[in-house]
Design a protein around this nucleic acid. Sequence first.
DNA 1: AACTATACGGAGCCTTCCTCCGGTTCTACA
DNA 2: TGTAGAACCGGAGGAAGGCTCCGTATAGTT
Lengths: 185, 185
Amino acid sequence: MRADAQRNYDRLLEEAKQAFIVHGTDVALEDIARHAGVGIGTLYRHFPDRYALMNAVYELELDSLTRRAEALLDTDDPADGLVRWLRAIAVHSTAYRGLAATVMESGDLRMTSCKNQLRAAGGMLLERAQREGAVRRDAEIGDLLKLTYAIVLAAEKNPDDAGVFNRLMSLTLTGILTRPEAAVR
Amino acid sequence: MRADAQRNYDRLLEEAKQAFIVHGTDVALEDIARHAGVGIGTLYRHFPDRYALMNAVYELELDSLTRRAEALLDTDDPADGLVRWLRAIAVHSTAYRGLAATVMESGDLRMTSCKNQLRAAGGMLLERAQREGAVRRDAEIGDLLKLTYAIVLAAEKNPDDAGVFNRLMSLTLTGILTRPEAAVR
DNA sequence: AACTATACGGAGCCTTCCTCCGGTTCTACA
DNA sequence: TGTAGAACCGGAGGAAGGCTCCGTATAGTT
């Protein structure tokens, strides 16, 4: 990679990150290019579409989420560890409004590398919690992540309601029904 | 309302319903107008924006959902009644891809009339279930609807996974943790 | 039949996405 | 250091959808 290309790549990535945080992930790509001081053509050469850019930005955060998962593997309470990690994911994806909607999709290959890393890191936390009987055996890491992102999405659509994320998360973690075996087959 | 206006209104509504079902709620409004045999200006006069159209289409279904709620008030198992109603809502909103995302929002006034009717109907089912101790006391109908729509959204983003809706719904209804009191404060 | 309030419709402007290609700049190698 | 050409730059412009505006057409009334 040529030095100027590398420079532009880095600037675009940094600028995209800021723009996603401030304006959400559906910000106009032209704005990102302009703020990075390059033409729109350069942006598209480095990142074929909006999702490549989102993937690259999210990858910046993946290391810390992976390390967090590893650290939480050492805590005493496995259920608490899993829950803390899901909350950490939520915090990260909440920072980039609109990101959750994309990460939740499974149909296409967009952001696949990010999603695989998340699944691997969370899978270990989930398995430990299940081994110790703290979490239902039939829960899968993919579904847990989908639920987490779904709740993030619901929360970001209710920006005036600060408590909505915690309420929905609590409902989901502990269950809505008091006698579940009776109503859900 | 003039006769020709009424005719066009009805045609637009019917055409919008079909288009939403077939192409999702982000279909081009020009297509709806064309299929209804009117100009785009006429569409915008009757429905100021896309959300007015979505609201009108969803209102067509509200009666049946309200009646369903009333019928379910007479069933033996209150938890089962609530769950069945939430599933009915999910079925309806799943038919119109993209609708769930809009209904979930609370910030603005779009689709307010629909959302109020849903809350009223579901609130009765929820209260009965809570009175009989079948559902957590701290659950609110608004949050339950948000969760339901969030799951619909997650499911419609995973069209290749037929079971995802039921799995997420089951996780949410019965809870992910086996000893919730220990991990969630 | 004439009149008026109401409704119609599409031209046209704006914004955003994305592609394409002529011109420019950097790097490697002599 | 000079140079060839590979790599890169950037913005014009086509495509598509959202929405507005206003000249024209028509339903309903007297």
